[in-house]
Design a protein around this nucleic acid. Structure first.
Lengths: 227, 227
DNA sequence: GCAAAAGTGTTCGGGATACACCCATGA
DNA sequence: TCATGGGTGTATCCCGAACACTTTTGC
């Protein structure tokens, strides 16, 4: 068994939708390398820790959420020999989708964390440390793609939501407007995408809207379509 | 920097279509652990070697093909602490799609390698060593999904192929029959999926069929549909 | 009443499906 | 001539896009 010196880490692309825009949680690095630069939250995998366990632990540390109910999925692994100036570090990237947090971002480890518009970061390929721009791009692309054929958009919503709130998620992630009428019909007619609760709300203004919670579907038939 | 003792490997899901069926390249392990059991080909990442470089090297060793023109993509990374009895080994899985090889499988390292029906292996979850059953399942699922929205099926074909040979790929991977007439129209009308060469062949019998090579498309609009 | 958002009805066009039918070769 | 697969035409159906219109609240 040849165990070369090697670090194993996970990095997190934590996305949310706030103010109608797709945002990503970034931290400002307090220590070298890339001190003072923005980066994705992440950390090393502990011995005997599963990769997803590491990711959930990091997620809980950064967001303050008990991460059990948060959607988390592996995106890809990055292992270019020179991607970290400290030595060989291979990083497994995870994508997390969280609802708009009522509480502010919790302490994290002294480094400052904040929500940043994902499109702004993607437009500036030099803003992030390491190869995190690429990781973010891959994570966002994954999220955009999965909205089409999975009910994942509900992961951005609180437990109870209206159809137009769900539409707001699609519009924010895809960055384009959708027809409210056709969207409403499509969502409510797709089997097990959402389930009506029976109560209504007027928090979005106008006529009271029905409240829904997630359905039981894992894939959407037929899929939602982008433009 | 905490560099715990850790092995980093790549495992390959190498798929082809032979005799109208989806087949996977397996090796019989000559050394413990799991000696004598079937497994996916794979090996450790060398220092200063990129992950994909490792995968291409392994692919070349196992198939004898200069792996440059072979489709290769990362699928997922598997890192359960107990997945390898020798110690902590994290494996990055890659999916390779190769045409039906005219040459037999090259020597590989003394272990015997052979093509096996993928569905047979998937039906017997205890046949493969380590967590390779799961890795194979994920790889095959990726291949099935990508045939829908990418021109990847051509990766299973030689440089020049007929539409019905391409259809054979879809039928083998998806495991269901497709209407030859509608398939023909769909493929030839989808922009840049395939490009006619101008010559014909009668190798499939019947009326001579036009030969095509891959088009320039990276995604299919509209996608091919399953069932 | 008026604005605003929810929700329904309807029309139109394109793609999927099913299948009839003709074409070009080998045997 | 027949068998075999290649390829085209066409009718039907469903779904997505577009949009007119009605409903139900707050102000």
């Amino acid at each position: 068994m040849d165990f070369e010196p090697l670090g194993l880490a996970t990095d997190l692309v934590i996305l949310t939708v706030r103010d109608g825009r797709l945002q990503v949680l970034l931290i400002r690095r307090g220590i070298p390398p890339y001190r003072g630069r923005w980066a994705l939250p992440g950390g090393f995998v502990r011995p005997d820790e599963d990769l997803e366990t590491t990711a959930r632990r990091e997620l809980a540390e950064e967001t303050g959420l008990s991460a059990e109910r948060i959607h988390l999925e592996q995106v890809a692994t990055y292992g270019a020999p020179d991607r970290d100036p400290r030595g060989r570090v291979v990083s497994v990237a995870y994508l997390a989708l969280v609802p708009d947090l009522p509480a502010p971002v919790a302490g994290s480890d002294a480094a400052s964390a904040s929500w940043v518009d994902a499109t702004d970061v993607l437009d500036d390929s030099g803003r992030l440390a390491f190869d995190h721009h690429r990781i973010l791009a891959d994570g966002v692309e994954r999220a955009r793609a999965k909205l089409e054929y999975s009910p994942l958009a509900t992961a951005f919503c609180p437990a109870e939501f209206t159809i137009s709130e769900l539409r707001g998620v699609y519009e924010a992630v895809w960055g384009l407007p959708l027809d409210p009428r056709n969207f409403h019909r499509k969502v409510t007619k797709t089997r097990d995408f959402v389930a009506p609760i029976g109560t209504t709300t007027t928090r979005d203004g106008g006529r009271p809207a029905q409240l829904f919670h997630r359905g039981t579907a894992t894939t959407l038939h037929p899929p939602m379509t982008r433009g």
